[in-house]
Design a binder for these strands. Structure first.
Lengths: 207, 207
DNA sequence: ACCTGAACACCGTTCAAGT
DNA sequence: ACCTGAACACCGTTCAAGT
């Protein structure tokens, strides 16, 4: 009989007699990060949470980086971003605002995990193809390729910088408000205002 | 005779018979990061570079976080940022562009170490007082306190997001150009263009 | 096929001791 | 005063083995 089948004392770990799988591991990892913080996510701690041996994880995940990649993919899947690339917008302004706000919603829903996505290499999956899909969609609303990448790059930089620092500060102190000094420049409600200012700037610049 | 005074074989480590000090450690750490990467900076490796025992570092540095704090302070000192806060500008546009460009110059000069600064907590020194000095200076050029923090927060978010991803990509691949996919949205020469677009947006918004 | 403990090569840091 | 090695409590991951 495998140790995993033995009844686990309740409360100590997740009530998961569910079989181990790449998805189960990924889901548990996200939950772990949101409850206990990214810096506490270790292969050993995650295994304990799942009630299995540390090495069992390596059946479904090549290594820690592979796990992080799976988390990123899962987060993008849970967001509105994939659906956005398929929708039709009447101009680039509406489309880019919608895309960046979906990005913000992801940060608000998963503040602990967000930095994995924000700091993920842009030249690897799934970020690279997401950027390309967005750029292509933007070109469908009248921008040239160069303009599409310019707007996308600029707005993405703003959103990444804003949300990354906001999410980190939020996680550092336990409460939801964050330190007072930071609130002055990183209130999440002010995010959209800055976004629209930036879009207005591009509007003026692109004629 | 202390082991540190023994002649070190040249090339193997820094030619530093210089006495150990907090500054010497900080300087060596920055050089280490820029040459070998942040992920390779460990207390053990840094001590070896300095030709001393690992524990000798702890005479001058409380722990790794304290060392990182010292690095951040040193980087800010080496930049144009402190001088900027003392200079006079005729309007907030010129001042904020100058400040953000000084921030960019720092990222270009120290791409390996930049993320320590970019990800440093905004509510701790020396970042917090720098932000306050900048906000005060901006109010001297006609902005209200609220407007000063709004512009500062927005432009800082853009710069942080842009430069952080650029610096990471630059360090990841060995060469100076970075992966082709990223160059499309993160050419360092395009940084200033986006900055001016954002400033133009605030110009229009603040009337 | 699925799971696992022991072991290895690392970390940061404490402690007790050297000169 | 300044420096240090041994040791501790961790990491991620390899390997050889269990069912």
């Amino acid at each position: 009989m495998s140790p995993r089948q033995v009844a686990a004392e309740p409360g100590a770990q997740l009530d998961s007699p569910a079989p181990l799988s790449r998805d189960a591991i990924t889901h548990a990892a996200i939950e772990f990060i949101e409850h206990r913080g990214l810096e506490r996510l270790t292969m050993r701690a995650l295994a304990q949470q799942l009630g299995c041996g540390t090495m069992s994880l390596y059946r479904y995940v090549a290594n820690r980086d592979d796990l992080v990649g799976a988390i990123i993919e899962e987060l993008v899947d849970r967001s509105d971003l994939p659906e956005l690339a398929r929708r039709r917008f009447k101009n680039w302004q509406e489309m880019s605002v919608a895309a960046i706000l979906a990005y913000k919603d992801l940060a608000v829903a998963y503040p602990g995990s967000f930095e994995l996505l924000a700091l993920a290499p842009y030249d690897a999956e799934p970020v690279s193809s997401h950027i390309e899909r967005m750029a292509t969609a933007l070109q469908g609303t009248g921008l040239t390729e160069r303009q599409a990448y310019e707007v996308l790059g600029g707005l993405d930089a703003y959103a990444t910088g804003y949300l990354l620092v906001w999410a980190r500060a939020r996680g550092a102190s336990g409460d939801a408000s964050g330190p007072a000094a930071l609130r002055k420049i990183r209130d999440i409600d002010e995010f959209e205002r800055g976004l629209r200012v930036f879009v207005a700037g591009y509007e003026a610049t692109l004629r």
